[in-house]
Write a protein that binds this DNA or RNA. Structure first.
Lengths: 227, 227
DNA sequence: CGTCATATTGATGGGCATCAATATATGTGG
DNA sequence: CCACATATATTGATGCCCATCAATATGACG
């Protein structure tokens, strides 16, 4: 992947759309491609901030270890998404772990120093960063919302209802976007409980499920479950 | 409270320290004082963003209602802290509720339009915003950490150990900073459970407690509880 | 001192994690 | 392409943590 291709990747990042092409060219000149295997660490909590990143292919999980040995997933990043820019701007070390969750994950790594220069000299970059951080805030608030619901069934129901859905003849088809085990982990539900909930709802005729696709047949019923 | 006094309040906000006095003067000229009774709403989720705020006296709770009727506290703000700037910068309406949690709460309300102008024209304001947003991110990540711990005792133990503590002859004295009921709510623990946990630890000789002050006698024991 | 919020203590039940076993899916090398 | 290995998913049985309901105690405040 050459410089021009990297610039193309950067130009596709939602929050960088408003940034001048000249700046993107400068950033892409200070960028390189990183390839990771599934489970490979991009950086670990406490590592010095040296760069920010954009996912090209595969996916990255940002997480923190919990004292009981489990992990808390903060966000799963998909192609086209930017991350670690906040740490770069205001911290000396990353506050979370970042790992690839797919084989063949590809990341654009943009040098931090060059990026900081751009941030300081270009108000549009600064504005882009504020927009991105703000988006992060909302995501985290949503995650807090999810976790605050004591009821496991309510947590799952709400999550399903908030996912992007494709309308089909039967109902709304939702792609979980990850394995059931991973989603269960993210919602702080035991995989067994997850499975039982889905079965209960299938038996009740509220949902259908095939692999990691769930079709919501009775959204109202799920809505009630989420209360 | 006159314009100069308001400017003094703004100048004391950690993230605005690096901002030019001239800009602060401009902001304070577009500011006013708001007084609230305990429980009084400063704004509600969905209200159009018209201003950002600094707490002068008392306290403000940012929260979201949960479907089960409880609320999720996102943050409690104390004098000198700024909030709602993120919403102002990137959203059209506030994403959370804000209420006074003390009688006689005083807030500086800075007009949003004037602030936006300052943000767009002054890179130092933009940098200040990024720092502030970043701080918010860390706070929320910590809150997620807290909530992700399934064990109620572990949640409380960790919270106590992370609070600013004053070293005394007996151990570390921690001020809960709010009523036990409120803290319990924030940690998603029933007040009864909270009480029982504290009693258990007192009986075990790990802590002392008097009102909303807790003295940690055996931090190691609490540390183990938090795992 | 009375009123109301907060805090404590007890009894009970349900939700959900845990352990265990099996089934299904995914992937790998011969 | 099949056989094997490994990860994921399902289903069952058990126990415990913690929310809930209830009653009383303590504290805050006008």
């Amino acid at each position: 992947m050459d410089r021009a291709a990297i610039e193309g990747v950067l130009a596709e990042v939602p929050h960088l759309r408003a940034v001048d092409a000249a700046v993107l060219r400068r950033l892409s000149g200070a960028a390189r491609i990183v390839r990771l295997e599934r489970g490979g660490a991009l950086f670990r909590e406490g590592d010095p901030c040296r760069a920010f990143f954009v996912v090209v292919q595969g996916g990255i999980t940002l997480f923190r270890p919990l004292p009981d040995g489990r992990i808390q997933v903060l966000r799963r990043l998909r192609p086209g998404q930017m991350f670690a820019e906040a740490a770069l701007l205001t911290m000396t070390s990353y506050p979370v772990h970042a790992e690839a969750n797919d084989a063949g994950t590809e990341i654009v790594e943009v040098d931090g120093k060059v990026f900081l220069d751009a941030f300081r000299s270009d108000p549009r970059v600064a504005a882009a960063m504020v927009a991105s951080l703000s988006n992060w805030l909302l995501q985290l608030v949503d995650r807090i919302d999810e976790l605050s619901i004591a009821n496991a069934g309510a947590r799952l129901a709400r999550h399903l209802l908030r996912r992007p859905a494709k309308s089909t003849k039967a109902g709304f088809e939702v792609d979980l976007g990850q394995t059931k085990k991973e989603l269960a982990e993210q919602l702080a539900i035991a995989p067994e409980t997850f499975s039982r909930l889905l079965k209960k709802w299938k038996d009740a005729g509220w949902v259908e499920s095939d692999g990691n696709r769930v079709t919501i047949l009775d959204a109202d019923a799920l809505e009630r479950e989420g209360e």
